[in-house]
Amino acid sequence: MQVQANFDTVKRFMSLATGDEKHEPSAHSTLDIIWTLYDRVLRFDPQNPRSEERDRFVLSKGHGPIAFFAVLAAKGFFPPEELKRFGTWDGILGGHPDRNQVPGAEVSTGSLGHGLSMAIGMALGLRIKRSDRRVFALIGDGETNEGSIWEAFLLAGNLHLPNLTCILVNNHSSTRDLGDMAAKLTSFGWTSTTINGRDHEQIYQALIQQDPTRPTAVIADIAH
């Protein structure tokens, strides 16, 4: 059943979850992006979460999945009451998403630096299948400290994967200064843009763009 939900509904759903392990700042910095993605960009069927016809979303950073879970509940993947059982023995929602328990979660993540490379494999798989579906991977600015993220940046640019979009949520939590990430990604063979990660229209316009020959990077800045 598709819930008639708006952005306020999602925020209310987020508050249903309690506990100390919710990665609150992390969850709130991804909220606008994940909502816009599911509300206006992704193709999916909550009744058939593994449908071949879906677009794929990988929460690479895994941390702070409450926003993700709230959006999935708002879009009808599971009842919002499940959020009340966050982190409990009988619940399916934990500190990081488990794809074998959470309807709509493509990939189990948590350890940083895995999801973007897995998204490359998914994008390659879709290319072999001649599918026009897209793969979106959300990474954090702290996550870019991982070497495997730079492996993935290099590989996706080299493989010319137009069906892959990487959303880098920059909430300025990285210990290391990242410099101009859009310029870096452009030099790695991506088409890159930097947006305000709170502005739903900017998010939407950036996410519907596709370069026919290159992967797309959207650096979503979240102000302090």
Binding site: E106, G113, M118, I120, G121, M122, G125, K129, S148, E151
Partner: peptide, 22 residues
């Protein structure tokens, strides 16, 4: 697919292919 000298991504990308049914 020869990913290059990037063994972490080699395994993760293979997992992505497995997720797509390969």
């Amino acid at each position: 697919i020869n990913v290059g000298i990037m063994e972490q991504t080699m395994i993760s990308a293979a997992a992505g292919l497995a997720l797509e049914g390969f």
